[in-house]
Nucleic acid binder design. Structure first.
Lengths: 242, 242
DNA sequence: GAGTGGTCTAGACCACATC
DNA sequence: ATGTGGTCTAGACCACTCA
């Protein structure tokens, strides 16, 4: 790996190493939750100084695809757990209770152009469209519409709606080997249509916050499009500016 | 500074150095916008290695109180400029136009307990309460209610409402020597009261997004409480999860 | 005690900005 | 040419975890 050159194509050595590690993690050489080799070993194996390895690993840690634990090792992230959309809302009740989910419908559909583009698929490719409701203490609080490309999630097609787990992402990891490392949420405001309002026990036209999510796997590919609706009066979010 | 000990009180050397630099910046030894000494000089002056200085400066950069520019130097942040609340909304029109502001009222009030606590003042201390409207292309889009402790902003008391600048934070920096380095925004949903609706050319009770802001100076002290209202149908925000 | 990540050093060289 | 921050090295030692 030592080329003698300052760095290839203007990319720093640690960035190259980070990319190398990233690919191995995505490729499954080190599984989700498992430890990657110790820094000293990586340094030796790739022929770079310890500091360079540390800088590369720091990049991956900042990207969230790896987590360092002092004294134990560096681990491939387990991925997002799932109840994360609730962070946009403040619902009453025993807050420590985990949310449950009820799948209402799961059908196979063809991707439209915009959806295919976002998911890195071709227009007309097959996908699963899932309608589900998230409940807190048995009370419906969020209505969700998921879109999952069938190419990655064939295993879910035959799954009866009752057997879907409460948390989607751990299920995706277990059944389909897909780890969700990152998600981007776009918030906006709207009013509930009759069907969604009925699901949430709210009047038609009630003010609601809409969250459009794109979820990404370890390789940075978008593997889910999701739209979530929740009561606007329960909306609450904290953002930091600097 | 070299104590020979591993580090004092379990705090790393670079963290100590960062704290030292932080205090000098807050204390005004290096003014906002000015460069702090070069890393090599800091290393020499504080008797630490270059890498340690770099780690300390990296902390300050991550905190946003300093900005590094390759080849030029490291500069104390100029602070937030101001039109930042518009990032929560998507308003139509020529987007590159800067927002303007119109101050409707500015009065001296006594702080209530909760406000004083947040601002680090005593209950009953004097403060300025300012009502203003932000306009885009001459159209009112945001209604704001500012609360500024008089202890820090005596200079604003005598300022006629017409002479308030469009951007608050640069004005605070110029007239009062206060740099706003960071702000925390809490978003929630509500309906406009009659007075606010009138200011925004919206019907009373119109759905609105409310932003409660705390702004902090370089020393991390809260120096402003602000509540902003904007049309919910123009609301839009993007959040990243990892 | 062995292995891991975290801190620190002293120095070399590279890349960018400015004069 | 000079000065700045950015990269990289080779090695030492510290702090944490676990068998």
């Amino acid at each position: 790996m030592d080329t003698g050159l300052p760095n290839a194509a203007g990319v720093s050595r640690y960035a190259q190493l980070a990319q190398e590690l990233r690919q191995r993690i995505v490729g499954g050489e080190w599984a989700a939750g498992a430890a990657i080799p110790a820094e000293t070993e990586l340094a030796e194996r790739f022929g770079v100084a310890l500091g360079t390895v540390r800088q590369a690993v720091a990049m991956l840690a900042a990207e969230g695809i790896v987590q360092r634990v002092h004294g134990k090792g560096t681990f491939v992230t387990q991925g997002l757990s799932g109840p994360s959309l609730l962070r946009f809302f403040r619902f009453r009740g025993p807050t420590d209770e985990p949310p449950t989910a009820r799948v209402h419908r799961c059908q196979t559909v063809r991707l439209r152009a915009a959806e295919a583009l976002a998911l890195g698929q071709q227009t007309g490719d097959a996908a699963l469209r899932v309608k589900r409701v998230r409940l807190l203490a048995g009370r419906p609080v969020l209505a969700e519409d998921l879109l999952l490309p069938l190419a990655r999630f064939e295993a879910l097609r035959a799954l009866p709606t009752r057997e879907w787990e409460d948390l989607l992402y751990p299920m995706l990891a277990r059944l389909c080997g897909v780890t969700v490392a990152r998600a981007n949420d776009e918030l906006s405001f709207g009013h509930l249509d009759a069907a969604t309002a009925a699901l949430l026990d709210l009047p038609e036209g009630a003010p609601a916050i809409r969250v459009d999510r794109q979820a990404f796997d370890l390789g940075g590919h978008c593997i889910e499009l999701r739209t979530t609706w929740g009561d606007a009066t329960a909306f609450h979010y904290s953002a930091e500016m600097r």
